[in-house]
């Protein structure tokens, strides 16, 4: 069974924006078009090897910063500014990667199957941090150390790279958090944290700030308290 690969929180990439996303040592240009649809391609323009996450999204295409070569959401090069009336050859294309958004997180490939309780809740992005530690170490910290017993939250694993903290099932209060881990390459692990609330409730700033503080504490713990 494949493990989920989180890339970023949903709010990391806005409409008409491209960002860099890493899955281990693979670099991807992750971008949204004007409608908000997400796309991911190889991060290298086949013209002269320019990293595409430095490019710009315009007219629902990903454009390379160097010469403005323009690629559609299938990765096909549709326009080369130096030759405006010429149709680019179909050998010029970008590899595409499947990405999906669910529960406030962007995943490479399929999102993990969510427990029903989580799927029914509303997700609000908190923050992503990247720690200089192996994923396994971070997983241990997130599943054990994110909250203490006093917080009345329990850990529920989703898969090896994702989990959540929720109140005991019998409570009427619905709140918690969802985290997803990312192998971000070069020995770094990304932790993407979202707040969970009941669908009609908005996550209060206090809850979001508290979660952010917890994440900070985990980061310090996992990286050691070195300045």
């Amino acid at each position: 069974m494949t493990v989920s690969q989180a890339l970023a929180l949903s709010n990391a990439v806005e409409c008409n924006q491209v960002i860099l996303a890493r899955a281990s040592e693979l670099e991807m240009a992750l971008w949204r078009d004007s409608t908000g649809a997400l796309h991911a391609n190889q991060n290298r323009c086949p013209h002269r090897g320019m990293r595409l996450h430095f490019g710009f999204v315009r007219d629902d295409r990903l454009n390379c910063l160097y010469h403005g070569w323009s690629y559609d959401n299938q990765g096909r090069c549709k326009y080369i500014p130096a030759h405006p009336s010429h149709t680019p050859s179909n050998v010029i294309f970008l590899q595409t990667h499947g990405v999906q958004e669910a529960h406030g997180v962007i995943w490479k490939g399929q999102p993990p199957a969510m427990p029903e309780r989580v799927a029914a809740m509303r997700s609000t992005p908190v923050r992503s941090v990247y720690v200089a530690a192996a994923l396994a170490r971070v997983r241990d910290a997130m599943s054990a150390a994110l909250f203490s017993v006093a917080d009345a939250l329990q850990h529920v694993g989703i898969d090896d790279n994702a989990g959540c903290w929720l109140p005991a099932a019998s409570g009427t209060v619905q709140y918690g958090c969802l985290y997803a881990l990312q192998d971000a390459g070069e020995g770094k692990t990304g932790i993407h944290l979202a707040a969970l609330t009941s669908p009609e409730a908005t996550a209060s700033p206090d809850w979001l700030l508290a979660l952010s503080a917890q994440l900070q504490a985990v980061q310090l713990d996992v990286e050691g308290a070195a300045p």
């Binding site: 960002i19 860099l20 996450h53 923050r127 990304g190």
Partner: peptide
């Protein structure tokens, strides 16, 4: 700076 999502936004 690709990891500093809030800074980038």
């Amino acid at each position: 700076r690709s990891v500093y999502h809030n800074v980038n936004r």
